[in-house]
Design a protein around this nucleic acid. Structure first.
Lengths: 208, 208
DNA sequence: ATATGGTTTAACCAATTGGTCAAAATTACA
DNA sequence: TGTAATTTTGACCAATTGGTTAAACCATAT
């Protein structure tokens, strides 16, 4: 509702994020987005032709952000463990402010899988490159030869799922928001440790 | 559409599952559910008062199934590793037939977190009991004292997320359905190994 | 001043949607 | 067989929703 600063187009996009993130495509109402932005509904159509266009803008913004960060971290100049810590840290802090975002992205991926490829192309992200980077780094740092695909998925699982399952955790174990925050805090050290231990186990079995 | 066998009430519920699972609450249409069941739309309202009632029935069925299985496996008479394998196996095979289900449940949990508690009560599932079981078993089998909460979340993450992220995996890495099936197959041995290795790492640091 | 261009609004519309209701069809049962 | 209860249907409705359009607004340049 704060009309100060920022163009109306930006305010509309921000409002759209807020509504789409929490209610999804079908649950979102163009009128609600207009209200949230403090403008007439027609203005929303003026800047973004229709609901689909607006949704795509919101989705690309969200998915692009997550993808870009993952890419940036993996290709950065850090140790393997540092990278996990970095990604975890970003993910947890960023998403404490945008708690609906991961589920929103996941839903979007189900509905429009094609978008993934165009997004990868636009951001010039190469999955193969990421995998190579991962494989090489694990080999050089930990002297372990490993198929990096399962490892990548495992890392992502351990980082992303606990954020996705937030309501499950809160309700089942009766956590308050503060307790949940502490839980995520603990994971910043717990998860890298867990992964590193798992990899060291492979050392005995698979390395030469 | 198969009117054979099963009461109309059951056919309506099955149709509702199909539609709600793939389109969510807001995306689902009562008319589509009626068509899918091969009955008049009014019949849907006759058996299930309104959309909310029908959705709740579908959600409870889905969430209840997953929860019951998790409970059954954890409390069963198996080794720690066997339990992980069992749960993984159930999860992967069951969900290859119901690929929309985990995301559906996750969305439902966001929208109606209260349902979790009533479901736990109805199925007489005690989270504390599960955690105790897990802690004791890890202590007795692996001689490791560990706070079981993070472990439980880690196991769930490694089992559930790769299924949730199906479209991401398929598109990013250009997997066919067959290749994806093989990937899940591999995880049946890969994941228990990963977890066990991680835990063995803790042995050196935390056990006495 | 006024013409011009982009910006914003109010009024409106066609289509959709969840839900109702009374009547018809079918079943149960005396 | 007749009749009461249950199940199924078609017609209908009020409300909602995405989207359109023409007019109003407003800054800026001439």
């Amino acid at each position: 509702m704060d009309k100060n600063k920022s163009t109306t187009e930006e305010r509309i996009l921000e409002a759209a994020k807020k509504v789409f993130h929490s209610k999804g495509f079908d649950g979102a109402r163009m009128q609600e987005i207009a209200n949230e932005a403090g403008v007439n509904k027609s203005l929303v159509h003026y800047y973004y032709r229709n609901k689909d266009t607006l949704f795509n803008a919101v989705f690309e913004d969200a998915f692009g952000r997550l993808l870009a960060k993952l890419n940036e971290v993996i290709l950065s100049d850090n140790t393997f463990v540092s990278k996990i810590e970095l990604f975890l840290n970003f993910y947890i802090t960023f998403l404490s402010q945008n708690s609906y975002l991961p589920l929103f992205v996941l839903n979007g991926l189900y509905e429009k899988p094609e978008q993934i490829k165009s997004m990868l192309a636009k951001k010039k992200i190469s999955p193969e490159k990421l995998m190579d980077q991962l494989r090489n780094q694990v080999r050089e740092e930990l002297h372990i030869d490993i198929e990096p695909f399962h490892l990548l998925i495992n890392i992502l699982s351990l980082c992303v799922f606990p954020v996705l399952a937030k309501p499950l955790i809160m309700t089942i174990f009766g956590y308050s928001n503060d307790q949940l925050g502490q839980f995520y805090q603990e994971r910043q050290t717990t998860v890298p440790e867990f992964i590193l231990n798992a990899l060291k186990g492979y050392e005995q079995n698979h390395s030469k």
